[in-house]
Design a protein around this nucleic acid. Sequence first.
DNA 1: CTAGGGTTAG
Length: 612
Amino acid sequence: MTRTSVLNQIHLFLPSKDSSKSTVFNLRLKDQDCLSLLKRCKSMEEFKQVHAQMLKLGLLCDSFCSNNLVASCALSNWGSMDYACSIFRQIEDPDTFVFNTMIRGHAKDASFEEAFLLYYEMFDRGIEPDNFTYPALLKACPALLKACAQRRALEKGMQIHGHIFKLGLEVDVFVQNSLISMYGKCGKIELACAVFELMDQKSVASWSAIIGAHASLGLWCEGLMLFGEMNREGCWRAEESTLVSVLSACTHLGSFDLGRCTHGSLLRNISGINVIVETSLIDMYVKCGSLEKGLSIFQNMAKKNQFSYTVMISGLAMHGRGREALRVFSEMFEEGMIPDGVVYVGLLSACSHAGLVKEGLQCFDRMKYKHGIDPTIQHYGCLVDLMGQAGMLNEAFELINSMPIEPNDVVWRSLLSACKVHHNLELGEIAAKNLGQLKSHNPSDYVILSNMYARAQRWEDVARIRTEMVDKGIEQKPGCSLVEVKRKVHKFVSQDMSHPQCHGIHEMIHQMEWQLKFEGYSPDTSQVLLDVDEEEKRERLKAHSQKLAIAFALIHTSQGSPIRIARNLRMCSDCHTYTKYISMIYEREITVRDRYRFHHFQNGTCSCSDYW
DNA sequence: CTAGGGTTAG
């Protein structure tokens, strides 16, 4: 029913000049009719009008009706908690029902404090909470978490858990699922697991919650293992929300094949994939290296939300397609969506990867002045990156000095690597000094600086950095590479030869080396900052995780099939060169995702044009 | 009339 027709119906119920007519209608109008009328409202404004007129007629006064009214305002997508509160406060004897609704409404609005105050008010008034109260309340804990108070959120959550015990409620599956989710979101995976394991009846939602908890904490392999366990143990068919977490795990692990399978199972088993699932699919395809597939899902979506746009924009950014990211952004704007800080992080990084300096600076201004978003350190980080990569080193440095927030290590590191690319040792030293003061002992910072000294032939300084690293006990963080072969993700850690098929890999590497040498490759040992001889350096270089992963993939995949690798760190320049050669010699397309972007290797060249 | 599980950057 449209809005006008709801209002037209109201007029029938209003007292009219013709008193006989109004009496007839008044007699026929019951509370139930009013409620169903109110349920059809599509906006707060409409609801208020209708409600006011109902009150004039002296209707909707009992607790059942009030509860319904509060539920409409608090839980519908057009509702307003303010109005819900005003109705709620007029209720003389609020019951557990209406308290539950109000708490849930506050949780939905991410206002934890209000939710918790209502909970205490229940005790003061002697109203007993029930099994419906706790899921609502537990849902509010992550809201508190969002306000940057992890410790407090957890404390509150545990306090609630304690109350549930004390009240001696029979804890049902809903409450348990909420507990799992709450502990998961507050970063306490062991507590989430404890609740999960103690459950005697697990629902699909319980599995979703525990898998989601693992996935959101970066325990992706564990999440996938639980998914396997769920499939073995249960007779349920996984639902969309479980598969969303599975897809998210695939995304982070770069598990293209498993992701594609999950997509297939969604298509087979579920009619009409919803926005959230579609968004996770886009994210999965894009971050597993298939931008085109992601784009095609995006373009065919019936409904897009804030997340969909954010995912697409940051995806385009990772692949260096800045112009398209800007176009998707304007599309989002035309759809009437209000961009948030996260979209702008994606947009700014898109500009920086594509070298769109002017556009990036415009975006930054637009964000601040048009959308009133206070730039966070991430936004400044993108901006420093943007300027630095474009060679505007002094401007970047000035920006850091004039920022209203304290620069962090990421910002200084951005400047440092820009200085390396554009050979500005002087500024590089300043950046490195600031990194040192931040006590951020990231080994790659030392490597970069030392390489810069080496380029300037300042060998004493190179030696000084090395000693400093030894003195501080800084070792290069082991790199790790993930590669998927026959739907199984294999993890390789630099220098680690514990893979079951280590022997074969070793032989393959040996064979590869001969061919590489023949084509003119020579190892670049300048990346190895260890006080060992050249031979040892070459050995260490050979055992970089990316090379192990490539060797493994070459052995176990068929000739000509693409290889996809996901890494935890940036690639070293030796691995970059090495992979270019391999793509040519073995005629393979190799896609490597590092921490910042994608590299597509083919026929001896890389899509990043050797600039990253 | 009220309930559980899900997607994004760094």
